[in-house]
């Protein structure tokens, strides 16, 4: 069996998004020794050069101004690359744009589709089996995808990033006039960069440190931020915190906030209401720090500390700095 697997790569300048690097790893294992991995991206020559380092056999690129990059436009270009490369499987990284694209591309290219996938295997030609968490991580389902083509969006952080292998594949430039047929006048007016200053964004982060009402006051939240900095983590919050205006609602994790699934989630002074849990239970390892040994958060946690966050968190920050050899700043 020699499947061709197309990675729909997200690039920004010369940077290749982490979820795209994860998709390359999956693509290599699906293609196996006999199949091939190819890629398509919206970007300029520097994007293509960076992508080449991940070892695809061929690359398709299209240069589209950022304010016109919609899922509709990318579906047209990606479907064209899929046709030209004769791909059977298209892999999309688990970014918000990737999930948006999946349904459109599947329809356009005549494929079955699944998102949030944590396992994928070829059963036989034209039949894939995928596994994915559902109900906010409270269950998983296995689905059979049949037919000659499938579009699969991976769950972020579910797979390791593929190492660079190097290469100088042929680069095909897609004709932007392909887009002239697409209808609708959507324009991006502005982008307010994520207010991280330094750390990773909540959706991307491999580690999230989240604080709740148990932090007692807005000014104590700085302890959460210092712990996050020592870990290179993103900061999250419960709704009690964002409702109180201690931190902006963009940090809220849960049913009405963001869903995250990092490698490590540290919940500090968070009781563990179901609306909070649905946004984070699928995290790989969960730590809870809470004064109340009966707090529901301990039911989903892997490690628990019953104690005062205002004392534990600074000690934890110091310990992490110590083991990482970071200076006190």
């Amino acid at each position: 069996m020699t499947p061709t697997v197309l990675v729909i790569a997200e690039t920004s300048g010369a940077a290749v998004a982490g979820p795209t690097q994860e998709a390359f790893g999956v693509a290599r294992s699906l293609a196996g020794a006999d199949g091939s991995v190819v890629a398509v991206t919206i970007g300029g020559p520097s994007a293509a050069r960076s992508l080449a380092l991940l070892g695809p056999k061929e690359i398709w690129v299209a240069d589209v101004p950022p304010e016109s990059i919609t899922s509709g436009a990318v579906a047209i270009l990606a479907a064209q690359a899929a046709e030209e490369s004769r791909a059977e499987i298209a892999l999309v990284g688990g970014t918000s744009f990737g999930r948006d694209l999946t349904g459109r591309l599947a329809v356009r290219w005549g494929a079955a589709a699944a998102t949030g996938v944590t396992e994928v295997a070829i059963v036989r030609p034209g039949a894939l089996r995928v596994r994915r968490p559902v109900f906010g991580g409270r269950a998983t389902e296995t689905r059979a995808l049949t037919g000659p083509r499938a579009v699969i969006a991976l769950r972020p952080h579910a797979f390791p990033e593929a190492p660079a292998t190097g290469g100088a594949p042929p680069i095909h430039v897609l004709d932007p006039s392909l887009l002239s047929a697409s209808k609708g006048g959507a324009r991006r007016r502005s982008l307010a960069p994520a207010e991280t200053g330094s750390g990773p964004s909540l959706a991307d982060a491999a580690i999230v440190v989240a604080g709740g009402r148990g932090m007692r006051a807005a000014e104590n939240f700085r302890l959460i931020e210092e712990l996050a900095r020592s870990l290179g983590a993103a900061v999250g919050a419960s709704r009690a915190v964002t409702d109180a205006g201690w931190r902006p609602s963009s940090l809220q994790v849960g049913q009405t906030g963001r869903t995250v699934s990092p490698q490590l989630y540290i919940a500090v002074g968070i009781s563990g209401a179901i609306q909070h849990l649905v946004g984070m239970v699928s995290s790989r390892t969960i730590v809870a720090i809470n004064t109340d040994p009966g707090a529901p958060i301990f039911k989903v946690a892997d490690y628990g500390i019953v104690g005062d966050a205002l004392a534990i968190v600074p000690a934890l920050t110091r310990e992490i700095r110590r083991v990482r050899g970071l200076s006190e700043t």
């Binding site: 999946t102 349904g103 599947a106 329809v107 998102t115 559902v134 109900f135």
Partner: peptide, 14 residues
């Protein structure tokens, strides 16, 4: 809220 695919809206639009 059940399957969390995020597929249907984009697919209908396409």
């Amino acid at each position: 809220g059940d399957d969390e695919e995020g597929i249907v809206v984009g697919a209908v639009a396409e």
